[in-house]
Design a protein around this nucleic acid. Structure first.
Lengths: 107, 107
DNA sequence: CGCAATTACCTAGCATTACTAGGTATGGGA
DNA sequence: TCCCATACCTAGTAATGCTAGGTAATTGCG
């Protein structure tokens, strides 16, 4: 509760949500919640700044949706974003393995 | 490289190192490196403040070693530290699973 | 023996970043 | 109609890993 375990992993999570389909911010929050079985229930104030940061870094592009009656900014992975997703996924698996190595060293 | 993936997980890693034996700071750095096959090669400026923080939180106690010719501050898990280790280990596994759920949702 | 590298500790300040807490606006259902 | 959910935004805060500096003592090598 108190600690912030997802520091440094949020970018990966958001990128992963957009891998197969463009989504708008609110839908990303929903997607994270569903894919993680409720574990990631992130406030908007967490996700929106991430989207802006990732767009600024040219990993995402966005445009206002015309499909919906509602005002929605839809985000899509750029080529660089896909590359970043691949790399961060790899880094995650390495990191995860390393933690397991340290924590599970009890035997 | 640029991002900080271990934010929020460092406490767990340090606590895990001390689960079976008391260690001094420098040895903890070494232990982390070895247990993770070189992945965690942390600067002292990262680890020492963590030790101080954990001691302040009463998860560790420390004393100057008399065993060695060198000046060493040896840290040991308190009862609360063991409890925290157990809890954070659990939280890590949940977190790890949640990330896998999001990232691996591609199918 | 002299000297450099390693061991071993410490801390002030920086940068990043998730989150809080506020705000705006619109559409749909009761 | 009126409220709730949807949907967006941002300024400021707190936490924390890291940089970059510092101090000493011990060990090993030439």
């Amino acid at each position: 509760m108190g600690n912030e375990p997802l520091k440094g992993h949020l970018d990966l999570l958001v990128l992963a949500c957009l891998e197969n389909e463009p989504l708008h911010g609110y839908a990303i929050i929903d997607s994270l919640k569903q894919r993680s079985s409720g574990f990631f229930d992130l406030p908007e104030g967490t996700v929106y700044p991430v989207l802006h940061r990732l767009e600024k870094a040219k990993l995402l592009t966005s445009r206002w949706s015309q499909q919906s009656s509602r005002r929605r900014r839809v985000y899509r992975l750029t080529r660089a974003g896909k590359a970043a997703l691949a790399e961060q996924t790899l880094q995650w698996s390495q990191f995860s393995l390393a933690v397991a190595g340290v924590v599970g060293a009890t035997s």
